[in-house]
């Protein structure tokens, strides 16, 4: 049982790492980035291309993936989302066009990777192994443990930064009312670039860690995780760090114990039914009231 709980916690951490950046961008600067899964995938794909030529240490693979994710995300914000938002007639049109733009960007990145890999799986050639650690009868790989620790550490750090720093306050202000934030001297476009860079960094980090953890991913792996991320974010409450943490772990535990119970084919149905019920009872999600964007 403890082993199963640990495995579910690692799965929750995977969802959390993936969802955190997406939730942050959506709940603060208002960018619902449908290309988040594609950034996740393409960051790994970039490392795969590099390690096809020469094997690298796993830690370097993860760092490169994170950097690629950040760069991709900044490019998207600068060249696409920022432009779309500027040229849109109103806030709703901007949100809608950003969603469509994200879908288009995702299709381009996935198409490129699919073409290069024939839609096959790809992984990293690393110079080191992923050892299995064993303590008190619990087995966990070094990368699984890393995913868990990194996801929790980033969540705590991000929550504290948002609550206690001037940058976090500015971000929350933009999330509540972008127009007022602008009047208060907050440079929204710079903040949006910074937020997207961090979101992309997390997507790339998740991509790098997950590719090592899962051995290989394929060009559409990010799409499946995108759906899980939506579920986790909506369940927890858009923009709430604690919400996305809880949402990710609830989703992972429900799925895990459905699978262990021999009814894994119903895992998504039950997980989304729970989310459906939560939305009926608490439309803003479990923790959305205090921090969710109100514009």
């Amino acid at each position: 049982m403890i082993q199963s709980i640990m495995n579910a916690a690692v799965l929750g951490s995977i969802y959390l790492l993936f969802s955190m950046g997406m939730s942050l961008a959506w709940g603060t600067v208002g960018i619902l980035n449908f290309a988040h899964g594609a950034i996740f995938m393409f960051s790994s794909f970039a490392v795969y291309l590099i390690t096809s030529m020469t094997a690298l240490p796993a830690i370097l693979c993860v760092i490169i993936a994170a950097l690629v994710g950040a760069i991709l995300s900044v490019l998207m914000q600068t060249l696409v989302y920022g432009v779309i938002r500027k040229r849109s007639t109103d806030h709703h049109a901007a949100e809608r066009n950003v969603i469509i733009g994200g879908i288009g960007l995702a299709a381009i990145l996935i198409g490129f990777a699919s073409h290069a890999t024939k839609s096959g799986s790809f992984g990293f050639a690393t110079t080191d192994q992923n050892p299995v650690l064993e303590f008190a009868g619990i087995r966990i790989t070094a990368v699984s443990l890393t995913i868990f620790v990194v996801a929790i550490a980033i969540s705590i750090a991000l929550a504290m930064w948002i609550r206690r720093s001037r940058g976090g306050l500015a971000l929350r202000t933009v999330g509540v009312d972008a127009e007022t934030a602008k009047l208060m001297g907050i440079n929204e476009s710079r903040l949006a670039i910074g937020t997207m860079a961090f979101a992309g960094l997390l997507a790339g980090l998740a991509g790098g860690l997950l590719t090592i953890h899962l051995v290989a991913i394929n060009p559409t792996t990010g799409d499946g995780l995108l759906l899980k991320a939506f579920a986790a974010i909506i369940l927890g409450g858009v923009g709430s760090v604690l919400g996305v943490v809880i949402g990710s772990f609830v989703l992972a535990f429900v799925e895990t114990f459905m699978i262990l119970g021999g009814v894994g084919g119903w895992a998504s149905a039950v997980a989304f039914a729970i989310i459906f019920l939560v939305l009926i009872i608490r439309p803003r999600g479990l923790f959305g009231r205090a921090e969710v964007r109100r514009t």
């Binding site: 082993q3 199963s4 690692v10 799965l11 995977i14 087995r139 699978i259 262990l260």
Partner: peptide
């Protein structure tokens, strides 16, 4: 002894793998 079923979107099997190994 036991059957685990998975949707095609599942990417991580650690929990079921652990139980199967046990």
């Amino acid at each position: 002894a036991q059957t685990f079923d998975f949707e095609s979107s599942v990417t991580d099997f650690a929990a079921a793998a652990g139980q199967a190994a046990a």
